[in-house]
């Protein structure tokens, strides 16, 4: 990938973060923290890695994206809108009655959503089923899952982790958004799940650890997934919760943001400036 292409990805991630703010303008509340920490990963998947066609969201051999931590849905909606799955005007309906973009993703409301998540700790099981099905149909499709670190405490995750390794499901890739925070505080104080990579490794997974807010590292990780590993891959992505919201980064209070127009103005200005910087570099 050229430097310019890399910068374009960063621009897209910034535009996606701006899309999140656009949704919050409508509702003045939402789960921003986990959406922003995962935004670089989700951007790399939608704009770089996944085989998809926004005009044919039901394409049989498309790669699948499962948002296990469904409350991060703002990051998926923003990427889908940016990628052209639906008109951006829909973003302005966040929080309103009968919106197609509810507080957790609903596959019956929007193209590009693959599973109805929101009840945490269970996306990996659904994703495993998709991966097994794709393997059986020989479509060559991969399944990517984004999980939170707090939701790792749910047992269903580990049932799926065991089964995925047992069935040698190599077309399954799980990103763990290791932002270190959940609702009640630091994950290590609430229910310590470290070493996360060590756990997946012990279950028989191929594992990597990266900085999940560094686009270069995300892309490199995606490129280095072994093609014939006969095992699933877990990418433990060290991230900062609310990354990109300068005054909220790493602060548990921004798990769910009750916001004001003034605060959003500030956040928007900062992200606009960053986008401008990237835009110039891309156009240079």
């Amino acid at each position: 990938m050229t430097e310019k292409e890399m910068t374009r990805l960063k621009l897209q991630a910034t535009q996606c973060r701006l899309n999140v703010l656009r949704m919050l303008r409508a509702s003045h509340h939402g789960h921003i923290g986990g959406a922003f920490s995962a935004m670089d990963i989700v951007t790399a998947l939608y704009f770089y890695k996944m085989r998809l066609d926004p005009k044919r969201p039901d394409m049989e051999n498309r790669d699948r994206f499962v948002l296990s931590a469904g409350h991060k849905c703002l990051c998926q909606y923003s990427a889908l809108a940016e990628r052209g799955y639906f008109p951006k005007e829909i973003l302005d309906t966040y929080g309103s009655l009968d919106s197609k973009i509810p507080g957790h993703p609903d596959m019956h409301k929007l193209p590009g959503i693959e599973a109805n998540t929101g009840a945490l700790g269970h996306g990996l099981s659904i994703a495993l089923g998709m991966a097994l099905g794709q393997r059986l149909s020989r479509t060559g499709a991969n399944v990517y899952v984004v999980m939170g670190d707090g939701e790792l405490a749910e047992g269903s995750n580990w049932e799926a982790a065991a089964a995925a390794a047992h069935h040698k499901v190599e077309n399954l890739v799980a990103f763990i958004d290791f932002n270190g925070l959940q609702i009640s505080g630091r994950v290590q104080d609430v229910m310590d799940f470290t070493p996360i990579a060590g756990h997946f490794k012990a279950f028989g997974w191929n594992t990597m650890e990266i900085n999940g807010n560094c686009m270069e590292e995300v892309v490199q990780a995606l490129d280095s997934i072994p093609a014939d590993a006969s095992r699933p891959t877990a990418i433990v992505a060290h991230t900062i919760k609310a990354k990109g919201l300068s005054f909220g980064e790493g602060d548990v209070a921004y798990h769910f943001w009750n916001t004001t127009d003034e605060l959003m103005d500030r956040a928007e200005q900062e992200l606009q400036a960053l986008a401008e910087q990237y835009r110039k570099a891309v156009e240079a």
Binding site: S27, G70, H71, G95, S99, P102, G103, H104, D106, N116, T117, G118, A119
Partner: peptide, 9 residues
């Protein structure tokens, strides 16, 4: 009451 979080909630 968790109205805008959708049917899972």
């Amino acid at each position: 009451t968790y109205s805008d979080l959708g049917a899972t909630h």
